[in-house]
Design a protein around this nucleic acid. Structure first.
Lengths: 165, 165
DNA sequence: ATATTAATGATATATTATAACATTACAAGT
DNA sequence: ACTTGTAATGTTATAATATATCATTAATAT
């Protein structure tokens, strides 16, 4: 049997074990290729993020790290998280001061997130033209855009169903 | 004489006194119209934000409030700021945990910000299609977008000039 | 082997934000 | 004008998020 878990992601059922394994393998391969150290700590933090398709705060992650005996002080979590963010394995959701595993690895992307304000689920979408939209302004003003993040807040369909208003 | 100050905003010179006065008057009129209390404290905080075309942290604002004898504890600043943000007179720049006066008041908008990572200057642009771009995904997944913010980080033209790399 | 660099451990503290409750000002109806 | 409810502000305390710094250990390169 391929899997025992099946979670709703974005809004579709999927084989979560496979999803997690695939992502870890991809990160492993990437680190191998670029001589980055995919240490047990960094791997564990990525696994923690992949477990949930929602944003986790650094201290929530730290609690989980503690449980697995892999570090217990804030800098440990923050350092692993910056590594993951820096290399595109995770993103920081600024609105939530929290982190999510990247849902579109290996894609050079300006991430766009849809964040449910009820359940905090985070769906990552490609934002193909958002930086393009700004480019006219950017060029006109001489601004050199290096990175854009689009964060959309709203209600996901399961929360709409749950609550009348 | 109309003005004594002239600052670079976005990237253009403009008459800053007029800009400030206009914005304050607009806020005043808006509050009048919707029976909102544009109290001295709220006015002062908006003035502080309008003085700078950059993002200010809550504690920086608080320091300036203290100097004018208008409150000295964090909740004072945060409460005024949430009022201003709630009614569209200011925006929070999540990336910076800081606040800017709205540059496009009275416009129903999904703000887009260009933030210089060197000098923290913040330029607000209209983001006409950013929510539109996401709408296909949003509709497909049943997500109901209520608000989007696009934050672009990069280098503004004065900082490009200042430093070679 | 050893020097160099990168990662982790550990302590302390900085920064950002809010909860909770007391007090004052305002606004609306009588 | 009075009083009653509501909104705003004052004040204290503390929560939540994040980083600086220095010591130690591990990996990597020569």
């Amino acid at each position: 049997m391929a899997s025992e878990t099946s979670k709703s992601v974005g809004f579709e059922q999927h084989d979560h074990d496979v999803c997690l394994e695939t992502a870890i393998k991809a990160a492993e391969a990437y680190c191998d290729r670029f001589k980055l150290q995919f240490t047990p700590l960094r791997r564990k933090v990525l696994e923690i993020l992949l477990e949930e398709h929602r944003a986790l705060g650094a201290y929530a992650i730290l609690d989980l790290l503690r449980e697995s005996g892999l570090g217990s002080q804030p800098p440990v979590a923050y350092r692993a998280l910056s590594f993951l963010v820096e290399h595109g394995f995770a993103h920081k959701i600024e609105r939530l001061n929290a982190f999510v595993a990247c849902a579109l690895p290996d894609t050079l992307h300006s991430p766009a997130f849809m964040i449910c304000r009820k359940c905090d689920i985070v769906v990552e979408a490609q934002s193909p033209s958002s930086s393009f939209d700004l480019s006219a302004t950017a060029i006109a003003t001489g601004f050199d855009i290096e990175q854009t993040i689009l964060e959309a807040e709203g209600i996901c369909h399961s929360c709409v169903e749950k609550v009348p208003a």
